[in-house]
Computed example of a mutant assay.
Amino acid sequence: MSNPIGQQSEVIMHFTIKLSDGSAADSTKVNGKPAKFRMGDGSLTENFEKCLLGLTPGEQKSFVLEPKDAFGEPNPDNIYHVDRAKFADEVPEEGAVMLFEQPNGAEIPGIIRAVAGDSVTVDFNHPLAGQTLTFEVEVLEVNP
């Protein structure tokens, strides 16, 4: 008998995240490497995990998550104006994603939204914030 996904299960699955226009924003199938994680470890949002509870190996499911249930709405407080001098000789291009080091040494991705004079606008919101997303999952393995 196969195990259903529970609160603490380790799960191996393929997933595809699609935007409302049907294009794929992310997919584990691109490089044929399924995602492996433990439920509750923070790698998925709580709402995404709720959709997975009870699924069993071999099961495929598709569900739509509104922004509040996926990556949230964009937060204006996560948009910063950075002095262009901090980029050394590299002038960032609009739309580029760059890693920025936080005071604790961790790196966080930011999207360059605008470059104007000596100011660079960097958006640290999740790139999929504010979007209604369709998640397609194929559960491969569940370990209790």
Rank of each mutant, 00 (worst) to 15 (best):
D21N: 15
K18F: 10
A129D: 05
G40P: 05
F15G: 01
N143G: 09
M1G: 13
G22V: 06
K86A: 11
N104W: 06
R38I: 14
E66D: 14
L128C: 04
N78D: 13
S20D: 12
N75I: 08
K18Y: 07
I79T: 00
F100S: 02
D41N: 13
E136P: 03
P67W: 01
D118C: 05
R38V: 15
V115E: 03
N125Y: 06
A70V: 02
A24N: 10
D123T: 03
E66F: 11
G105N: 05
M13Y: 09
D21K: 06
H126I: 07
F124L: 14
V115F: 08
P127E: 10
M13A: 06
V30W: 08
L133M: 06
G117V: 10
E136G: 01
D83M: 09
S2D: 13
F48Y: 14
E90N: 13
P57L: 08
T16E: 09
A88K: 15
G40S: 09
I108D: 03
P74M: 00
G42T: 08
L19W: 06
D77N: 12
S43M: 10
K18V: 03
P34G: 09
V137A: 00
P127H: 04
D123I: 00
A88N: 13
P127N: 04
E141P: 03
L99K: 12
V64K: 12
R84W: 06
E141M: 07
M98K: 15
E101L: 14
A85I: 15
G58P: 09
